[in-house]
Design a protein around this nucleic acid. Structure first.
Lengths: 326, 326
DNA sequence: GTGAAAGCGCTAACAA
DNA sequence: TTGTTAGCGCTTTCAC
């Protein structure tokens, strides 16, 4: 303790907590700081948490951190948290081996709030009885018991993709759709269908697939091999799926984008690592994470949190072009 | 408190802490468990940590979580931690904006130990005075003050890559090297140079680059355009760099692998999303993370932690072939 | 087999 | 302007 070293008792608390102005003399304050510095003293967080009843820790529930997208969501949330003296702990990915753990078994009492992605559907049940402020990410703004929702504008993103493709002249589209039952993917499908519906002669066929390159390749190959006129554009729910779609095209001897156009979603590193570079929609995952943390902090301060919406941007690159003449 | 609800006082502690055998009667224990269940009672972690002086929390220091590799390291560490009632908190990526934070300013007193990657070099200084058990990942086994080191066998991986390429007949290699000053990359360079040295007529030129696709593309393009006989194989320190190398080759009108072979390192998702699929070495990042956590837990139990070594595997795929005849 | 009591390090209210 | 004190919820002796 700096108490023995310095001069006083809990004056230390005031000084180190920056609450001493007008209550502790400047010399004393300086002495305390010097002693703390010299002893390498750090306040004990457990004691502080116990006393305060708050832990300055938020739980982030994401389906799989190994995905670049959610790693970025974490990065954004952690940055905002750190700026506010908060920490972020992750709910162990359900992907992992071992028993699916109740996020609260080990953590509930040590949390101030929860930020959850809609994709981690199975974890939501456990959150119901939490009684903690909850901010949902990329989720249905309507139905949740959340204090706030922070969503990238996925519908707008899909609308932009569709607009881009339709104005290039594409009329036979395939939606290479993530077979994941979550609001964000339903929204994308809805938005795409709506955009296509407005254009005479345009159709969209849906080909569901698991969220993996190999599964997407198989799905896209299926879609491109169906009887009837070949689709000219593959609209994928994720850059990863788009990578699979490109592989499918090449395996069938088709060129991207000359014979078939392919679009992604997210703008991961992958999008520009591929050849041709993917036309895709950038969702700023960091902003989603940061927005979620902001909303949670607001809720924690007792103010009504503002549901936010993160704009998205279409990046037209080399994987899309006008459809072949035929 | 379950105290009021149940029947007794701190008997609760014994029962819930599984320390009651032979000290509390079976009926009482059952009653406590029932009450706890019914009230949804969870022990307060802050209080427990305060009392015990331990937090069951480890810090994982990684350069950038947005990279798939380190996300996997985290996943592995978190899995092992969870199995042992531990949590893992991440050191905010130095990449992020905002002031570079001392990991201990907010966390030191709340940590039991530290796991650090060598790539987070700048953070190491701050760790020196930690006084906490430290496990290093992918770092020089010799020089560190670490209790243990957990390393994937990168030298062996590079040896396998070199062997693969040399036996295909390649003699003019380029090492597209990550311009990051860390042990793991020095080790790769050393191992590659050594393997090539054993083969008469074989040479390796080093082309340093930042760890990004676009920078790697530029570096590879430079290497392939140098005067003199063109290199026939590009050995990259990372799959991401290999993606850049492939783009460089195509931009110069060269085919992969017919005109030039390309190899990666890590076997990220990217490796099989690209075309051709990358010949690469799989480093099990999860195992590195898990091994690191195991070593830390061992150290925390007072037993001497065992430095571990994680074997790597060469995956020969479509990005390598015999060099062109000329 | 169970309860009473102390104390982990901190903060906030109050006394001096 | 500073020190004293109580108590956050838990674990752990130690009496009973």
């Amino acid at each position: 303790m700096a108490r023995a070293a310095g001069v006083s008792q809990a004056t230390v608390s005031l000084v180190l907590g920056e609450k001493w102005h007008g209550r502790v003399s400047e010399p004393t304050a300086e002495a305390v700081r010097a002693a703390a510095e010299q002893l390498g003293y750090r306040p004990n967080l457990a004691a502080r948490s116990l006393r305060l009843g708050r832990t300055r820790t938020a739980l982030l529930v994401v389906p799989a951190l190994t995905s670049e997208f959610f790693a970025r969501v974490y990065a954004g949330a952690a940055r905002v948290a750190a700026d506010n003296g908060f920490g972020v702990v992750l709910y162990p990915s359900p992907e992992g081996v071992g028993p699916a753990q109740d996020p609260f078994t080990s953590a509930r009492a040590a949390l101030d709030g929860v930020i959850a992605s809609s994709m981690a559907a199975d974890a939501l049940a456990a959150l119901q009885d939490g009684g903690l402020p909850l901010v949902m990410l990329d989720s249905d703004p309507a139905d949740s018991a959340a204090a706030a929702t922070v969503n990238p504008e996925v519908a707008d993103g899909m609308r932009q993709i569709a607009g881009h493709l339709l104005s290039l002249g594409h009329r036979r589209l395939v939606h290479v759709a993530a077979a994941v039952d979550s609001w964000t993917f339903r929204e994308r499908a809805r938005s795409l269908a709506e955009a296509v519906r407005g254009v005479p002669g345009a159709v969209v066929h849906t080909e569901p697939t698991a969220l993996e390159v190999e599964a997407a390749r198989a799905a896209a190959e299926r879609a491109l091999s169906r009887p009837g006129p070949r689709p000219t554009a593959l609209v994928c729910d994720d850059d990863l799926l788009a990578a699979g779609a490109c592989k499918a095209a090449r395996r069938l001897g088709l060129r991207v984008p000359e014979d078939v156009s392919v679009t992604g979603f997210d703008d991961l590193t992958l999008a520009t690592a591929l050849e041709p570079e993917l036309t895709t929609v950038r969702l700023s995952a960091e902003q989603v994470g940061a927005g979620g943390m902001h909303a949670l902090l607001t809720a924690l301060e007792g103010r009504p949190p503002t549901s936010a919406t993160i704009p998205v941007t279409l990046f037209p690159r080399a994987s899309t072009a006008a459809p072949p003449p035929a």
